[in-house]
Write a protein that binds this DNA or RNA. Structure first.
Length: 353
DNA sequence: GCGGATCAC
DNA sequence: TATGGTGATCCGC
């Protein structure tokens, strides 16, 4: 398989920033882009009320020159669709990872007899021309290496990793660059003296499985340049959820129940548009001390009814009265065990065609 | 199947 | 230091 991973840099483009950011009023400072920082941190520091999602980074802008920009998700979504159109010129085998990242299987492509790099350059340049966004991509013989190469190429580059180069390339990478290796796994790996791809390669597969179970096997394979997972371009969603954090916390039962009703209705609407039903309702709740639990209930028969979802969520909620005492910081509902409705019109037509 | 943990973005 | 929202997967029961 020729795999391809593209990552579009939206957050650094002034028009497409997806998240809250802080920007200097004076465009002569910081190239007119201002300074991106953790919105909540800045909000607290400068006494501005804000609970925007956070991103990374820098400071150095005086307080009186700061202004908060709300995220424009509509814009973000529409640009993402534009980018996807360009990718679809090359192949329909696209696995979206998020609005701005995707895997493409270009073993076959729609444009003709081109190399993976030629296809990549075509998309990269077209995306830049049509949206002004830079993107990087990685190309290799499997998904893992394609993604690794893409990260390596950021913010506006490309990386081609050939089979005979893979092991050396991986040996040089820090374990933090391995997909699936997060904070916790990193900590344990480093305690074992494993800091790089070379260290992973030096350990036996058995050793890694003994320490990390399935994850160990995956890391062993990845470090050796092996990843057989396909580009899942037809995957369907397995859960749908809605949750919200409150500042200050919620103490009133009526308010909590109203929120649950709203979430249930939102979820029911999505079930409707996606033509699926659910067999399992999950309640998620977090108190002021950040103590979080989830409780779920399996249904006898699947549903897409807002009120039925609400009733289950309410039942689960009422089994946890302690949270109202403490104060509710977060409340959420999600549904899993989704079942595709059969005999869907679109399916019928597409089958007949 | 359930609930917590971990991870990605 | 302060930790948002959505979704997936894995582990140990």
């Amino acid at each position: 398989m020729d795999a391809f991973y593209a990552s579009v840099e939206m957050r650094d483009h002034p028009e497409y920033r997806k998240k809250a950011l802080v920007i200097a009023h004076d465009p002569r400072e910081h190239n007119g882009h201002g300074v991106i920082t953790t919105a909540n941190y800045v909000a607290r520091k400068y006494g501005v009320g804000s609970a925007m999602p956070a991103i990374k980074a820098v400071q150095k802008v005086p307080a009186d020159k700061l202004v908060f920009l709300p995220p424009d998700f509509e814009k973000y979504r529409s640009v993402s669709a534009q980018v996807h159109e360009i990718m679809h010129e090359v192949t329909d085998k696209i696995q979206s990872v998020s609005l701005d990242e995707a895997y493409l299987d270009v073993t076959q492509n729609k444009l003709g007899d081109y190399s993976t790099i030629q296809l990549g350059n075509y998309m990269q340049q077209k995306i830049y021309k049509e949206t002004g966004l830079t993107c990087s991509y990685g190309a290799s013989y499997n998904k893992f290496l394609a993604k690794m190469g893409s990260e390596y190429a950021k913010p506006f580059g490309k990386t081609l990793i050939l089979p005979e180069e893979a092991k050396d390339f991986l040996a040089r990478q820090d374990i933090s660059k391995f997909h699936g290796v997060g904070k916790k796994t990193q900590l344990i790996l480093r305690e074992l003296g494993i800091n790089t791809g070379a260290d992973l390669q030096a350990k036996s597969v058995k050793y890694l499985i003994d320490h990390f179970k399935k994850m160990g096997y995956v890391m062993a394979m990845h470090s050796r340049g092996i990843d057989l997972s396909p580009v899942e371009w037809q995957r369907q969603r397995k859960s749908i959820g809605k949750e919200r954090t409150f500042e200050p916390s919620v103490f009133e039962e009526q308010k909590a129940l109203t929120l649950l009703r709203g979430y249930s209705s939102d979820i029911a609407n999505i079930l409707m548009t996606q033509n699926v039903k659910t067999k399992c309702i999950v309640l998620k709740i977090r108190d002021t001390d950040f103590y979080t639990v989830t409780r779920r209930r399996m249904l006898k028969s699947s549903t897409r009814d807002a009120h039925e979802i609400y009733q289950e969520a309410k039942d689960l909620f009422e089994e946890l009265p302690e949270f109202l005492e403490k104060g509710i910081r977060l409340l959420g509902v999600s549904v899993t065990s989704l079942e595709q409705e059969k005999y869907q019109e679109t399916n019928l037509f597409s089958t007949l065609e």
